[in-house]
């Protein structure tokens, strides 16, 4: 389980996150927000990539607030696939194994689940957008992380491909049984992937009942004091 409590973050005195609290049980939670709402910052704080000003982060029973990213064992899928260009797909997926994260069985399982067998020996530059995203997801899942953090992983992909890939992603993520925080600005995307929903607005996070409510709240900005 992922739990964040009272997280605040400012950049150059501009408050990006204000006392944010959030829990993600073994489910896929979509955090929906407009561009610049602080959702990516929150994800990076949870991953340990960006330091926070205030607040605490727990993974399971362990408080990891001051731990560096390499100690947290979180799976991180950024907006751009960020594949290691000098390595093949196979080497990308196995990267966590170098640090004792994951097993050969999990690698094989991911290759099967993500249908990557045909492209294992290709370099990222030879892959289509869809395969890049699959490789990135597989690479993050191989170490069996305590939580998966997905930052608009299909950003830049056309709508039709997203409609095809998001249910695939959901299937794989649900099969892993790992808590997932999926941030996006696209309500439709969230609807295709998530079990539960939250909206981030003006640096604060609010739970909502469904994608429709999230959309309504984002449009009207009626979030505070409810």
């Amino acid at each position: 389980m992922l739990k964040v409590q009272g997280i605040s973050k400012s950049y150059n005195r501009e408050r990006v996150l204000e006392n944010v609290s959030l829990e993600v049980s073994p489910e896929i939670k979509a955090l929906i927000g407009l561009n610049g709402s602080g959702k990516s910052t929150l994800l990076k704080i949870i991953a340990g990539i960006v330091p926070l000003d205030q607040g605490k982060v727990w993974l399971g029973d362990e408080e990891v607030t001051r731990q560096p990213p390499e100690k947290r064992n979180v799976g991180y899928v950024p907006q751009n696939p960020a594949l290691f260009q000098h390595l093949t797909v196979d080497e990308n997926i196995r990267y966590g194994l170098r640090n004792g994260r994951g097993t050969e069985n999990v690698v094989q399982e991911m290759v099967e689940l993500m249908d990557l067998k045909e492209v294992l020996h290709k370099k990222p530059s030879e892959l289509s957008g869809g395969y890049k995203s699959r490789t990135c997801l597989a690479r993050a899942l191989v170490p069996r992380p305590r939580v998966m953090l997905l930052d608009e992983p299909l950003n830049g992909m056309d709508a039709a491909l997203k409609e095809k890939m998001l249910p695939e992603f959901r299937k794989v993520l649900k099969a892993s049984g790992i808590p997932v925080l999926f941030v996006t600005h696209d309500v439709r995307e969230a609807e295709l992937v998530a079990d539960s929903f939250a909206v981030i607005h003006d640096g604060q996070v609010h739970a909502v009942g469904g994608a429709e409510e999230a959309f309504h709240k984002m449009c009207t900005g009626s979030l505070g004091g409810e």
């Binding site: 991953a47 990539i49 064992n73 991180y76 907006q79 990267y95 640090n99 993050a140």
Partner: peptide
């Protein structure tokens, strides 16, 4: 982001630098 990803996969800063940054 490649550095961020490498670190979440267990690399410390020096490992991420020598295994990912320099080869790229």
């Amino acid at each position: 982001e490649v550095v961020d990803v490498a670190r979440t996969l267990g690399d410390n800063t020096a490992q991420a630098y020598f295994r990912v940054v320099l080869p790229m």
